[in-house]
Design a protein around this nucleic acid. Sequence first.
DNA 1: ATAAATGCAAAGCATTTGCAGTAAA
DNA 2: TTTACTGCAAATGCTTTGCATTTAT
Lengths: 141, 141
Amino acid sequence: MPIKSTHTKKAGTPFKRTPQRLAILDFLEGNTSHPSADDIYRSVSKKYQSMSFATVYNTLNTLAKAGAVREITIDPKRKHYDPDTSGHHHLICVACERIFDVPEGISVELPGDMAGDFIVTGSHIEFYGYCPSCGKKKKKA
Amino acid sequence: MPIKSTHTKKAGTPFKRTPQRLAILDFLEGNTSHPSADDIYRSVSKKYQSMSFATVYNTLNTLAKAGAVREITIDPKRKHYDPDTSGHHHLICVACERIFDVPEGISVELPGDMAGDFIVTGSHIEFYGYCPSCGKKKKKA
DNA sequence: ATAAATGCAAAGCATTTGCAGTAAA
DNA sequence: TTTACTGCAAATGCTTTGCATTTAT
């Protein structure tokens, strides 16, 4: 199911398919780089020179509410966006700050004594560390 | 080892014990509410009316570097701080936004095919859901 | 036709920084 | 006495918002 369709399976909020939104969706589709709003703006505004920051943010918020993209809060400096809304985790490289996908392994659960009192609607593992290329540089230094 | 000592086991960076810092450490010690910088400022400035925001931030950054407090990035709006630097996880209530501790259960690991390429220095599970009191309200609504 | 989206500029917060004065060591 | 910290205010950076105009439906 492409996220460009007017309706989504999940939240089902319909939204207008404007050229700007399609351009953002186009950039996002299949993108595994976990871009920030600024990354998206810089890339998409090359082709749509009229694109504004407000539109990028409005679109991302709309898509997030519709369940078409996922907001990632692993980086304290800014939000990142992921078109892959399936359950998976992330690793952020503490050197270059790039974010990498980590496939979902064993599912994460609350300890038994909390499970009765809390309702869990989602979970996410953040890994901190060094990516392959920064790991190499580190050893040399 | 109390975090008020001039040196910490971990990073070992010494720092001056000023009254402002002692007041912040005093507020933090044993605190499980995961306060934001603003929460800390509001509480500590009641007793130390000269306390400034810059000092709160400077102190928190110093303590974080020294390994005496942990920055929590579960809330996209602001950072939260945790004096408990032992390995544990968190749940944020999507209704009231309060953060709760989740004890560390099984340790989290990268899948085998990534483990050889990445160096993991830390990990953290974020749970999203409803706390007991917001869960009750939700059912009634 | 009508409800919603765009784009601009301004506003809003959280956080950082420069710097002169002050205090811990 | 020297080095580091405080406090203020200004600055920065990310994100949101108000509003007049434009556009998808």
